[in-house]
Nucleic acid binder design. Structure first.
Lengths: 229, 229
DNA sequence: TCAAAAGTGTTCAGCTTACACCCATGA
DNA sequence: TCATGGGTGTAAGCTGAACACTTTTGA
């Protein structure tokens, strides 16, 4: 990463990405191993400086493409971290995003290679992270959990066709709550009118499971419901 | 506002503030009249460039003090706007906040003076705003409405002691929904355990109203309740 | 004694929760 | 025919919406 010397005295603006995927019945985030000081050999979030002629969203999208070779990922801006001491070298304003990428959009070798510069880590067993990246990741996880409560973004983490069991598993893994009732979950999904059946089935250990896909015209966000007061 | 010439080629980082108050049974935002081009004579949000050694929150707090002479206001960061063309002169990254200020913390002349550089405008009758400030203000209003649904921030807009009617009015004005049922509202407030009575009453047209204050130890945010699914 | 505003209790519909049960498939 | 996982119906209990009612003050 390079930038003109003249800018070293001003602000650097970066995007830092918390990229989630669901794989092996686990919620994982993409991390990169740092080569240089500070925090050399530590893990950190993928990030990049924003170019002067580039929007923040474009910078975030570009960072995902460079890291994972995935285009058009689901993105949401989270929060901007700008403490003067968060980077010991210079003043960096970090605009953070979370991204959701389904595992079948990722290259097949994406999960095999644990020795390389990038690797997927379970959010339930994170290594020590550089800078304030642990705060950022935990914040992203909180926001993701809130978001799936009132919107249907979970499908961004699933393949195009999925069973209702797989959808329920996605919710349980993300929320770290494995006590959802199957019957009630299905009833809500049916009433929300967000999925439609396809005429295929998935082989399982027992009775084959009907496959569904998300409806193009689905209402993806519920209106906030008042509960305080 | 001045900044070193050397920085003109890099990023400017600004905080833009949407400052709300409740007055005259109306929700109002603080706006400033611009003196110079672009958008000369237009209204805009109070904002200021962040200093190199200052955190974003500090810059936001400082901006409120400079504009309204109010310290320690309730602040929340909202979103960061960074489109390359949002300011025609140079690249400005704007970190936006909303702030809530009770009217009794404001100087008495704050509402009289409508000819000056700053003035309070009803969010239900806004003038044309400079830059993308209309987007920012509408976004802040949406976020405020969401927030009072799951937290008790409304008290930041009320005096220290208030009647339950005043609290209910605050909700109705902010939500622009004047159909809240009195009995049900009071029941929820009682059960939420966030206010305690003081031994004084407010004179009204009829029976005097008991005054309450917010409990120091109140649980100000409810946990998200799952509804999708 | 009447108007105005504070303050409370009760009912009913609808939703959530818990749980029991049936179905389709492969071994 | 049994194990496995898919798929559904229903009763109990709780929550929220609607509304009627009582209380306390000043004029």
């Amino acid at each position: 990463m390079s930038f003109p010397e003249a800018m070293e005295t001003g602000f650097q603006v970066a995007v830092d990405m918390v990229i989630f995927t669901l794989v092996d019945r686990d919620l994982k985030a993409c991390l990169m191993r740092r080569e240089h000081e500070p925090f050399a050999a530590c893990w950190s979030l993928p990030g990049s400086f924003v170019r002067l002629d580039e929007s923040l969203d474009d910078a975030a999208q570009r960072q995902i493409e460079e890291t994972l070779h995935v285009g058009d990922a689901y993105l949401q801006q989270l929060y901007t971290f700008g403490d003067p001491s968060r980077d010991p070298r210079r003043r960096v304003i970090s605009v953070t995003y979370f991204a959701l990428v389904s595992k079948d959009r990722l290259p097949a070798d994406s999960f095999a290679d644990t020795s390389g510069a990038t690797a997927w880590h379970s959010v339930y067993a994170l290594p020590t992270l550089a800078f304030d990246h642990e705060d950022i990741l935990n914040y992203a996880l909180t926001r993701l959990r809130y978001k799936i409560e009132y919107s249907a973004v979970a499908f961004e983490l699933l393949p195009d066709e999925f069973t209702l069991r797989e959808l329920q598993d996605a919710y349980m893994i993300i929320l770290n709550d494995h006590k959802l009732d199957k019957a009630n979950f299905r009833k809500k999904i049916r009433e929300a009118n967000i999925v439609e059946p396809v005429s295929r089935y998935r082989e399982t250990g027992g009775r084959p499971a009907k496959l569904f896909r998300f409806r193009d015209d689905a209402q993806l966000e519920t209106k906030a419901r008042r509960f305080f007061p």
